[in-house]
Each structure stands twice: as C-alpha cells, then as structure tokens.
C-alpha cells in the first residue's frame, strides 16, 4: 500500500485547522487533564487510577477525536471527496489519524507528569502504549465510519468510555460473575495487567501474552476498519 507523506501531511494540516475552530471536540481534551489534576492533588496516586487516566485519554482523546473527525467528514459529505481523490486508503486514514495521535501523546505526557507516573521510562510499557494507541485510533475510525454525524459519534463513544475507559475500576464487581470474565481480555484490562507485571519487574516472556492480546485486538480493529472504509467508498 502506497503512502504519500505529502498527502498525509496535507490532510493533517486541514484537520488541525478545522479542529482548532471546533470547541466542542477540543474540550474533550480537558477530561483526562482535569482527572489528572484532581487525582494529582493526592500525596500518591495509585497505579489503578493512573491507568484509568491513561485509558480515559485513549478513549476520550484518541478514539473520540478520531471518530468525531471522521463522522463530521461523513456528515458534511467531504469524506467521499477524499475517497474519490488519488489519495490512497493509507494516505487518508494515516492523515486522519495523525492529529488524534499527536493530541493523545501530548495529553498523555501531561497527565503522566501531573500524576507522577513512575513507569514512564519502561520500554515494554511504552511499546504497549504505542500498540494501544494504534488500537484506539482504529476504533475511533471505525466508530466514525459507523456513525452518520458528530452527534451520533458523541453518543456512540459513551459505552466505550464506560467499558474501555473506566472498566478496570469495576474489576472487583465482575469477578463474582464468571460470565463477565471475558472482559479481562479487553485491551484496557490487558494493559493494566501488563503494567502491574512491569512494576513487578517481570521479564518480556512473562508479559508476552498481554502483548499478544492487545496486538490481536489492534490487528482485528484495523482489518475491520479498512474493510468498512472500503465499503463506505461505495453507495450500495
């Protein structure tokens, strides 16, 4: 698949200019920062809370901004214009993900600094965060493609915030119900298990399973996203 950096950059610049005038979407950036600031007032912030802030950043910044950008393109009939240009699928999806990725990285660094996240320099954790970032960007694109407007995207993100953003907080609630055990295989739970293992100074072999599950989710989401994207280029 060909990628033209010139086209990716052009789409990024366009999205940046548009988003800078969209206060509704911009204010979502404040959610994780606000949480980090509130919890950061405590003497020590538990790893669980820090991970919740990380997951909320992924959901409300990466996934939501991404879904909002795509859904608005659909709502205003501009996505088809991009699809009918010589830009490849990779150019368009890459360009459209770049802004939410940059915003996520910036927001997350600030949140981690505010909450004094001590594992910030762990290469294994950074790799897991990077894979998660791709997963949430893909998920946001998928939500944007499934919904028809910015308003619908704003509603569609709500269950995602509860399940993937705050789900790990309810771990104790789901433990008595074996039927809900599958939730532990969600990427947010896997990221938490991986982080706890990294804190215990586990070897790479010990965390490989967590990496495998997160990567599996990421690959699945990317395949579904590209498939849905290609279907959306048709009016059938």
């Amino acid at each position: 698949m060909n990628v033209s950096m010139r086209r990716v950059y052009a789409i990024f610049v366009k999205d940046f200019k548009e988003l800078s005038k969209n206060m509704y979407v911009l204010t979502t950036l404040l959610t994780p920062l606000l949480l980090a600031f509130v919890f950061g007032q405590a003497e020590t912030v538990s790893l669980k809370i820090q991970l919740m802030i990380i997951n909320i950043t992924f959901v409300s910044v990466t996934a939501f901004v991404q879904s909002a950008i795509i859904a608005e393109e659909k709502e205003k009939n501009t996505l088809r214009g991009l699809m009918m240009s010589p830009a490849s699928t990779a150019d368009i999806l890459g360009g459209k993900s770049l802004l939410s990725v940059i915003l996520t990285v910036g927001t997350m660094i600030l949140c981690l600094l505010i909450t004094d996240f001590h594992l910030i320099n762990e290469p294994m954790l950074l790799l897991a965060l990077l894979i998660s970032l791709v997963f949430y960007a893909g998920l946001g694109t998928l939500l944007g493609l499934w919904t028809k407007s910015l308003l619908e995207a704003s509603v569609a993100i709500v269950p995602v915030i509860f399940i993937l953003g705050m789900g790990t907080l309810f771990q104790k609630l789901i433990q008595p119900y074996p039927l809900l055990k599958f939730m532990e295989y969600f990427p947010n739970f896997q990221l938490e298990f991986l982080t706890e293992a990294v804190e215990r100074e586990a070897s790479f072999g010990e965390v490989l399973g967590y990496f495998g599950v997160i990567t599996g989710w990421t690959v699945l989401v990317l395949i579904v996203t590209v498939t849905v994207y290609r279907k959306r280029s048709m009016d059938e």
């Binding site: 052009a10 789409i11 200019k17 548009e18 088809r80």
Partner: peptide
Amino acid sequence: NSGLYQRLTIYDNLKLYCEL
C-alpha cells in the same frame, strides 16, 4: 455528495486538493 470544509476558507479547501 461533493462537500466542502465549512470551517476553512475557499483557498484552504482548494489547497488541500492541490496537495492530494
């Protein structure tokens, strides 16, 4: 179904397509 970016200027809309 040909739409334009409402928050951008005419020039910025066309500039994007020049790049594409």
